[in-house]
Structures are given as C-alpha cells and as structure tokens.
C-alpha cells in the first residue's frame, strides 16, 4: 500500500517535469523570460553550487536557513506547548493568558518584522523572534485544545489511582494530549518555513530567502526557481523527520498504527 503510494507520487512528480519541458523547451508556450527552461534551471543550480550566488553556495544558504528554522521551531514549541498545556489544565492561567493571547494572535507574524529589526537588528536574532511568533501560535492552540479534549474519565481514573501532581502532568496529561500536540507541531513547522522566507527577504546576507531576493533583483528566473525548490525540498524533509518522530512517539495510538 505504502509502496503504491510512493509510485503514484513519483509519477506525479515525473508528470510535472515532463509538462515543464513541454511548456518551456519543447513548445515554448511559456517564454523563457517568464519561467526558466529545465536547462536554464540546471545551469543556475550548477552555478550556485559550484561558484556560489548571493555570497555563498546553495548548501551554505540552505544550512543557514535550516539552522534558523530548527532553532526558532524549538524555541517556539518549547514555549508554546507548556503554555498551551498550562492554559488547558489551569482555569486561572487560562483566564489570565487567553485574552492577551486572543489579542496578539490575529497580528500577522510578518507585522512583527519592523519591531524585531528595531529591537534586534538585521541579524538572526530578529528572524528567530519573528518565526517564534508565527510558530508559537499553533503550538499553544493545539496543546490547549489537546488538554481540553482529554477524556474526562481518564483523568478521573488517574485521580482515583492516587496519582501525584507531577506524575499526573508527565504520565497522563501530556501523553493524552500528544496527538493534538503533534497536529500543532506540524502547523508550527509549516508556519516557520512560511515566515523564514519572508523574514530573510527583508534583511539577510545569507539564506534561501536572501537567494530569492537577490535573484529577483538580478531578474534571474532560473535562480528564483532554484530558491523556491530548495525551500520546498527542505520543508518536505523537515516535515518528514517530524512525521518519523510522531510515528515513534504515538506508536500506542490508533492513528499511529498505520
């Protein structure tokens, strides 16, 4: 079943590549100035990897972005999940935090960029802050909902078994909310990538977003495509790793069985 899915996926990717050839190189339906041909793409890819573009090679740009993502993501979920859990478990904390959260939540993460740059300059710290805001929200919401949706009788069972508070948190509340928490993690990761590219478009000297920015200024469609696909591949890879972790951690659940 899984094998067949992979085959279907590969066919779809293959189909798109053929379509790409057809629309650009073979029949020229899309002019080369608008969208690069596969050959131009290949040249751009070789250029950035061998000679570098926008100051570094593609691997360096990618590693830099990836490092930013990992740091920001960990900071965001490391703060968001505990906050969400606290809000779900403690009525008073919820009453206190939720109104503030509701007010801050609708502000688009990118709207924080000016403030972040003002506070932290053009370096990585400002980007971490912006990504943190973006990735933080889904983590909080899902951890909160995860606790809220715990089957009441499971909590009562734990209370009846005389569970002390710390063990209640660590062995009952957190595991019971884990399926929802992972939903939040996936959304947080998605939000991290979306925001990273935007943050790097504004002020950066290295990174995939910077490559995109430079390529736009140089009117270099092939390099734009290289940057975009790099984001796609990296995003897919990080999601894949998260999926592996999830399958491991949630092996006990029905969802994790497949």
């Amino acid at each position: 079943m899984r094998g067949r899915k992979a085959v279907v996926g590969l066919c779809a990717v293959g189909g798109i590549i053929i379509l790409w050839f057809a629309l650009t190189s073979w029949f020229g339906i899309i002019p080369a100035g608008r969208f690069p041909t596969p050959a131009q793409f290949w040249v751009a890819l070789k250029q950035i990897e061998l000679r570098g573009y926008a100051g570094s090679t593609l691997v360096d740009h990618a590693l830099h972005s990836l490092r930013l993502i990992v740091i920001s993501f960990l900071v965001a979920v490391g703060t968001g999940i505990p906050l969400g859990l606290l809000m779900g478990w403690n009525r008073r904390a919820e009453a206190l935090i939720n109104p503030v959260f509701m007010l801050i939540r609708p502000i688009p993460p990118l709207a924080w960029i000016p403030l972040a740059i003002l506070w932290l300059g053009l370096g990585d710290a400002a980007k971490v802050m912006v990504i943190w805001f973006a990735a933080f929200v889904p983590s909080v919401i899902n951890a909160h909902a995860g606790v809220r949706n715990i089957d009441k009788s499971v909590i009562e069972a734990a209370r009846m078994l005389g569970t002390p508070p710390l063990r209640m948190a660590g062995e009952v509340i957190v595991p019971a909310s884990l399926p929802m928490i992972f939903t939040g993690l996936r959304l947080s990761l998605q939000a991290s990538w979306t925001t990273l590219v935007a943050a790097e478009l504004v002020g950066a000297l290295v990174g995939v977003g910077f490559v995109l920015n430079m390529a736009q200024q140089d009117i270099y469609p092939a390099m734009i495509l290289v940057g975009m696909l790099t984001v796609g591949v990296l995003g897919w890879a990080t999601t894949f790793v998260l999926g592996l972790v999830e399958r491991r951690v949630l092996s006990w659940s029905l969802q994790g069985r497949g």
């Binding site: 089957d151 499971v154 009562e156 069972a157 734990a158 009846m160 005389g162 009952v172 659940s253």
Partner: peptide
C-alpha cells in the same frame, strides 16, 4: 483515592 477503586463503563484505560 486508591482505597475506593472505580471500574468505569468505558474502561478509561491509559491508551499510551
């Protein structure tokens, strides 16, 4: 408390 153990209709086991 554990001196009064409950068996629930929907089992209420810890699935994890």
């Amino acid at each position: 408390g554990a001196d009064r153990a409950v068996v629930f209709q929907q089992f209420a086991l810890f699935p994890w």
